[in-house]
Amino acid sequence: MAALRYRCAPDPPTAADRTLLLLHGWGANAADLLPLASVLAPTYQAYAADAPFPHPYVTEGRMWYDLSQHDGASESLLLDDRATDLATSEAMLSQWFEELPIDLSRTILAGFSQGGALTLSLGLQFPFAGLIVFSGYLVRPPTPRSPCPPVLMIHGTADPVVPFAIAQASYRHLAAANVPVRFHPLPMGHEINPAAIALAQSFIACH
């Protein structure tokens, strides 16, 4: 299996006590999201992965799965079982988690939008210190490990890309599966605004 491409900050990596992993959204890439690390957790070693698939419209953009194959905008939460792109991304990320020189129990995994979907679909199965989901959603019923990492979900009530109702449905599914999740609605769109950053900073400081 091919290895994921990624960027890190600082580069080259330092022997930091804690780590932040970042997963970008649909059409973005690692370079887009990596600057967020210096705001969220300036003392952490940060890594941002490039999704394995090229975006169909954005030249330098990447995607974790093809939205045309999946019903990601319904409360069913379920992707097309015949599609393999999500499984490929999950397998490559799992390999990445294992190969990075990090302690997962001292690592926060954070993702935006489609990256937030991957954070939930995969992150619940690993012993992370915590998961942060910006404008994300579940793509399948949750399968948490025990003990399960705590989850912070932040979503805009005016999000035109991932409707707020989808985030609410995802939160209900997580809570029903006994995932320790906190859900914070904010008056914003599909974005990471200063209020969202402050919530994430507080979560990171506690985990």
Results as ranks from 00 to 15, higher is better:
1 M>R: 05
3 A>E: 05
8 C>V: 03
12 P>L: 05
14 T>W: 00
26 W>E: 03
27 G>H: 07
36 L>P: 02
36 L>I: 09
40 L>K: 06
41 A>W: 04
41 A>Y: 07
43 T>L: 13
46 A>Q: 02
53 F>S: 09
55 H>E: 01
57 Y>L: 11
63 M>C: 11
65 Y>F: 15
67 L>M: 11
68 S>H: 11
72 G>C: 14
75 E>S: 12
77 L>M: 15
80 D>C: 10
80 D>K: 09
81 D>A: 15
85 D>S: 13
87 A>W: 00
90 E>N: 10
90 E>C: 14
102 I>S: 06
102 I>V: 15
103 D>N: 15
109 L>Q: 01
111 G>C: 06
112 F>R: 02
116 G>L: 05
120 L>T: 11
125 Q>Y: 02
125 Q>D: 07
128 F>S: 08
128 F>W: 06
130 G>E: 11
130 G>L: 10
130 G>K: 09
133 V>Q: 03
136 G>I: 07
138 L>D: 03
139 V>I: 14
143 T>N: 04
148 C>G: 06
149 P>A: 04
151 V>N: 09
151 V>P: 02
154 I>C: 13
156 G>V: 07
157 T>C: 05
158 A>E: 14
160 P>E: 08
165 A>C: 12
166 I>R: 12
166 I>V: 14
173 H>M: 11
174 L>A: 08
175 A>F: 02
176 A>E: 13
178 N>G: 03
179 V>C: 13
182 R>A: 13
182 R>D: 11
185 P>T: 10
187 P>S: 12
188 M>H: 07
188 M>E: 06
188 M>D: 10
189 G>E: 15
191 E>T: 15
192 I>A: 10
193 N>G: 15
194 P>K: 09
196 A>G: 15
200 A>S: 11
200 A>L: 08
203 F>S: 03
